[in-house]
Amino acid sequence: MLEQTLRRVESHKLFLLGLIRDRQGKWEVFTHNRHAVVPTQSFGTCYLAGTGTSLLAVKINERDRHAQASKKAAFTQRVSITENLAEGLSSDMLYAESDHLHGLDGMVSTYSCGGFYEWYRLVQEGVRKMPSRLDIHVTKTGDDVVITRLYLIASLQRLESKLDPIPTQKYAIQILSVVSEPTTPSQQTDGSWSLSTDNVDAVLIESTFELYDTPEKGGRISGPVPKDFLEKFFMESVSINRIRMICSSHGSAASRSISRLDVELDVLATASFEGGLLNLSLSEAVATTAAGMLQRLQEQSMPRQTRQPPSCGQ
Rank of each mutant, 00 (worst) to 15 (best):
K162A: 11
N241W: 02
L17I: 07
G292K: 14
T214L: 10
R21M: 02
E210A: 09
S90R: 13
A36C: 06
H66Q: 14
A290F: 13
K227D: 12
T110N: 07
H35N: 13
S207H: 15
E87T: 08
P39W: 08
Q77G: 02
A154T: 09
R65I: 03
L163N: 12
L282Y: 03
T110G: 12
S222T: 08
L94S: 14
T184H: 10
R256I: 10
G142E: 01
D64K: 00
D201W: 10
I136N: 15
H35G: 13
V37Q: 11
Q300N: 14
L2G: 06
F229N: 00
M107E: 12
E216W: 11
A202F: 12
T289N: 15
L176Q: 09
Q68W: 02
Q298H: 15
V108D: 07
E274Q: 13
M302N: 07
S177V: 05
S90G: 11
A57R: 15
T189M: 10
S196P: 03
T208E: 06
L89Q: 05
T270Y: 01
R21N: 10
A96C: 10
Q77N: 14
I205N: 01
T40S: 09
Q188M: 05
S255R: 13
L104G: 07
G218R: 07
D262Q: 09
L297F: 02
E264W: 12
A287I: 10
A73R: 08
Q300E: 15
A253T: 08
I147Q: 00
R307I: 04
W27T: 07
E97P: 03
R78T: 10
K129Y: 00
E284G: 07
N279I: 13
R242K: 09
Y111K: 08
A74G: 07
V238Q: 02
R133S: 04
G50F: 11
A253L: 09
L17M: 05
L278K: 06
W119T: 03
V79H: 11
M293Q: 15
A96D: 13
R7E: 04
A36V: 01
L2H: 03
Q4F: 02
S196L: 12
T306Q: 12
S54E: 14
Y151C: 04
S42R: 08
K217N: 07
D105V: 12
E210F: 09
A69T: 00
I166Q: 05
L17N: 08
Q314D: 01
K129Q: 00
Q4D: 05
V58E: 13
F15M: 11
I246W: 00
I221Y: 14
S161A: 02
L265N: 06
S301D: 15
T270K: 04
P185V: 13
T141R: 15
M245A: 11
I240W: 00
K13R: 11
E62K: 03
Q188L: 14
